Amino acid sequence: MPIRFRFRLIPFVVTVLLVALGIALAQWQTRRGDQKQLIETTLLQRQVEPTLDFNAAIRAAPAPDVDQLEYRRLAVRGEFIPAWPVYLDNRPLNGVAGFYVLMPFKIAASDDYVLVARGWLPRDPADRTRLPSYPTPAGTVEMEGLARRDFGHVLQLGDAGPLRPGAILQNLSVNDFAAASKLKLQPFVIEQTSNAEDHLLRDWPRPSLGIERHRGYAFQWYALAVMALIFFVVTGFRRGTKNSNKPAGQQSG
């Protein structure tokens, strides 16, 4: 029995599109996994470095290199500015909806400030705008935390609204906060890790979280591309075989 392949244009085009889509999405997931693997490697390297006294560092280099600071543990002396809190929404913790409490921190013996994520608060299920109270340390304190380039980005739902003290936002950049508050901010943020007895939770998500998930998604998209190609080839041979078995007068062109 002769084995023939019957080429069909429309299935061929669909197969090419599915293969291209599968490869493109697989490569995107692979790149995301590689990015998070690089973050994990950097985290592990900088975890063994001693905590950096940022007050001394800023005196030596007023314009710090964010690439060198990111994921470093910092100790900063200064005072919180409780008149300018803002809250990042859509930041769940252990499945509970809540906010990150953000507040500027004036660096001692300097006119510079740094934006600090102080911790997490649960959201009131009945009234999104009602926030539980939390104390703010008064006067000069020493605070420790992890330097981050930003607070991450979540899907923006609706208009952001005006940036003002007490605003509830979904995303925030350092530049936007500096423009609204008129404060001279450092070009990075700090996730506070030191305890301040302020009722805020500081179980920060690891920025490299999800490496294996991205690897798994990449495998699935590559598998889709392979399956689409195999399906096209197998069905083509089947149709070719069926047509070859028909009497000559019944075969269509």
Rank of each mutant, 00 (worst) to 15 (best):
A57G: 01
V14Q: 01
R31H: 15
A63L: 04
R31I: 08
A56W: 01
P50E: 14
R46T: 10
P64G: 01
W28Y: 10
V66G: 01
E40I: 02
R59E: 13
F54E: 04
L74C: 06
R73F: 06
V16P: 00
Q35E: 15
Q29E: 15
Q37F: 12
A57T: 03
V13P: 00
A26V: 11
V48G: 00
D53N: 15
V19Q: 04
V48T: 09
A63G: 01
T41M: 03
Q29P: 12
A57N: 05
N55D: 11
V14N: 01
A75P: 04
K36P: 07
D65K: 00
Q37W: 08
V66R: 00
D65Y: 06
A24I: 01
L69T: 03
G22S: 03
A56R: 14
Q29Y: 11
L21G: 10
D67P: 00
Q29G: 14
L18D: 06
L38N: 08
E49F: 07
G33T: 11
Q27T: 14
Q29W: 11
I58V: 12
T30D: 14
R31S: 14
R32E: 15
A60Y: 06
Q47R: 08
D67L: 07
D67C: 00
V13S: 02
L38W: 02
E40L: 14
A57Y: 13
T41L: 07
A63I: 02
D53S: 07
D67T: 14
V48C: 00
T41I: 10
A24M: 09
Q35I: 08
A61T: 13
D34V: 12
I23Y: 11
D67M: 05
G22R: 07
G22L: 09
L21R: 01
Q27V: 10
I39P: 00
T51A: 15
D67V: 06
L74H: 04
E40F: 10
G33P: 14
L69F: 05
E70C: 01
Q37R: 15
D53C: 04
P50F: 10
R72N: 05
T42W: 00
A75L: 12
R46W: 10
E49T: 08
A26N: 08
R59C: 01
F54K: 02
L44V: 10
V16W: 01
V13T: 07
L74F: 13
R31K: 12
V14D: 00
Y71M: 05
R31C: 03
A26P: 12
R73N: 09
A20H: 00
A75V: 08
R31Q: 15
A26F: 12
A61V: 11
E70L: 06
R31M: 13
A56C: 03
P50M: 14
G22F: 09
V48R: 07
L43W: 00
D34L: 15
L25H: 01
Q29C: 12
Q45W: 01
R72S: 08
T41S: 13
L52H: 03
V19N: 04
V66I: 12
L52F: 08
R31G: 08
Q29V: 14
P64E: 01
Q37S: 15
I23V: 15
Q68V: 05
Q27R: 15
V16F: 05
G22D: 06
P50I: 13
R46K: 14
A57I: 00
V14A: 11
Q47F: 04
W28N: 11
T41P: 00
R46V: 10
G33N: 14
Y71Q: 05
G33W: 06
